[in-house]
Design a protein around this nucleic acid. Structure first.
Lengths: 258, 258
DNA sequence: CTACAATGTTCGCTTTGCGAACGCTGTCAA
DNA sequence: TTGACAGCGTTCGCAAAGCGAACATTGTAG
């Protein structure tokens, strides 16, 4: 029999079902069965069973032929957040620094070739809101968070991760060549911080610093703001604030075992 | 064969796997296989396959014999939060009112006999932090949020939900009798708000008001604070603030299709 | 050191769920 | 109007996936 070697310890039906759950993201909040099947690379019948099971378990809702996530998925994340004491150890620190800097501060890590936002402060101030929350995923190549995360990996691995990522063009200033991006990553690694300008959103500058200790799974903190009249002064002030925030998180051992 | 009727549209392996994922909550952040099996009511072998599949998919991490959630579960919640524009429509409103009231404001709904926190303001105030975040689940019977949620259900259904819930005793002042609790729920329904004192945490008073329109899935907003020197004045101020917050969320249609 | 209890892992037998095939619904051209 | 077609949701026979009793392994008490 030339059937592909199959691990008896893994439940393939379960894995396929999880893939169905995972296709729901920001771009496609509600989908038909056929769309789910296409996105998850499964047969329509398989996707259907997975989706119906999720409906029965209460994680999906069915409106006519459209399927969408229910709030119950939050409970899954809640388990993680409470287990790691995010509410006590992480969020208050982010909030305090955000208030002081008058800017939103975000904590992030790598996940499957994207930047996964772990937590975010929300300072109430007249500034723009990007609509991202904990659990949002943003591109790797053209954000300061993403490049700082890559800088936390060994050079070879960073290159590999980047190579496995598509590099879309968000703005006219987005770097297109992997080599150019890796150069910025190397620079970030040397400097211990990363600044990106207008590569993801035009006119917006992003700042990021490492939080995790070297060698560990990279975790970074960052923020972003419209480019002001004194770019250098802004950068210095914000990076200094982020460094303080990162140091405090490190000292509290808030992110050591992620 | 007298086997129980089995729906061919539902994947039982997938459902069992989901149950494994769902047992990870705040009280038990990391568990052994046997513990997972016990909690999910499954055979150890079945729980093992589910857990190993989750490890392979990156949702669980295995440290020796302990299993715990990885940050990837946040991405699942992120899909929901982004789809419903929580970052843009809900969070800023909560933050603004929280800042004004100088207290944390929480948005919540019912989920399986518990109160599921949907969002929480992240304001830097001098006060205590309870460590709850979006996705946290708290008891139904002895919190103002829970009682206000029950008040949003038809009376018969509220009684049914409460009957299906265990009523632990958190403090000496926790009401023990379902009838007494339902009385408070009825009062909350009449008044349009709910205040609870010292029934969940001693010395802490909780406040809640409805957000969803009558008849819809109940959604409520609430806050909690140590009992001050002027309970009536505090209550009036906070409830007024919560009502404004709720009205704003209603007008923005931020929570209509949950 | 032995007995015991509790946990993790294997493998034969049964059940589940895969996917080709089907029917249904909307769309376009003749 | 009618026919051909494309895309969708749903069914069912058969292969393979996974259930759980049994076994192996680890931890604990006497």
């Amino acid at each position: 029999m030339a059937t592909a070697e199959q691990d008896r310890n893994i439940s393939s039906s379960f894995a396929k079902g999880l893939a169905v759950l995972a296709v729901f993201d920001a771009e496609t909040p509600s989908m038909t069965l056929a769309e789910i099947a296409r996105r998850s690379g499964q047969d329509r019948a398989t996707a259907r069973r997975g989706a119906l099971t999720l409906v029965q378990a209460g994680y999906l809702r069915q409106d006519g032929r459209m399927l969408s996530l229910t709030p119950r998925v939050l409970a899954l994340a809640g388990g993680f957040l409470q287990a790691n004491q995010f509410g006590r150890r992480v969020q208050p620190v982010l909030n305090r620094h955000a208030r002081q800097l008058e800017i939103e501060v975000t904590l992030a890590m790598l996940d499957q070739g994207r930047v996964l936002l772990l937590a975010q402060s929300t300072v109430e101030h007249g500034h723009i809101t990007y609509g991202f929350t904990a659990g949002s995923r943003i591109p790797l190549a053209h954000t300061s968070l993403g490049r700082m995360l890559l800088a936390g990996l060994p050079e070879a691995e960073a290159a590999k991760v980047l190579a496995a990522t598509e590099i879309p063009r968000h703005t006219g200033q987005s770097l297109a060549e992997p080599e150019a991006i890796l150069e910025r990553v190397a620079k970030a690694r040397e400097q211990g911080y990363c600044v990106t300008d207008s590569e993801f959103e035009a006119g917006i500058t992003g700042y990021a610093v490492p939080v995790s200790r070297p060698g560990r799974t990279p975790i970074v903190a960052g923020c972003s703001a419209p480019r002001g009249s004194q770019p250098e002064a802004d950068a210095e002030r914000l990076l200094r604030g982020l460094q303080l925030c990162a140091a405090e998180l490190r000292q509290a051992e808030a992110v050591d075992h992620l």
